[in-house]
Simulated assay, not measured.
Amino acid sequence: MSTRDSESGRKAESVASSFGRPKPGQDEGSATFGAFVRKSGARRVAVDISSAQDSQKQEDVIEPVEALPEDAVEVGYIADGYGLKGWVKIVPHANAKQGGDALLTARRWWLTKGRERKFARCMQSKVHADTIVARLGGCVDRNASEALKGYTVHIARSDFPKLDSEDEFYWVDLIGLDVENEAGVALGRVADLIDNGAHSILRIEYPDTNKDGKAATGERLIPFVGVYVKTVDRAAKRIVVDWDADY
Rank of each mutant, 00 (worst) to 15 (best):
A245T: 01
E219W: 08
Y151C: 02
I49A: 06
R108H: 02
A236D: 12
E70K: 06
A16V: 04
Y77S: 11
V190W: 00
R121W: 10
K11V: 13
W110N: 02
I201R: 14
F169C: 05
E28M: 11
V227R: 12
G9T: 13
D164P: 02
S50A: 15
R107D: 12
G176M: 06
A94L: 02
A35W: 00
A235N: 14
S18K: 15
G86I: 02
Q98E: 03
D27P: 01
P24T: 04
D130K: 02
F36W: 00
S125K: 03
V240C: 11
A186Y: 11
A35G: 14
D48M: 09
K214N: 07
T131L: 00
D212E: 14
S18G: 12
G29P: 05
I132Y: 00
A186G: 15
S6K: 13
E28N: 08
R203F: 11
R142E: 01
V75E: 10
G25T: 03
S14C: 10
A79E: 15
A129E: 03
G218A: 08
A129N: 04
P22G: 07
P207Y: 11
S200E: 15
G184E: 12
D242N: 14
R157S: 13
T32I: 09
R203E: 15
V133G: 01
L202S: 07
I90V: 06
K23V: 08
G29L: 06
F169A: 05
I49N: 11
Q58R: 11
A120S: 07
Q124M: 09
G176F: 06
H93D: 12
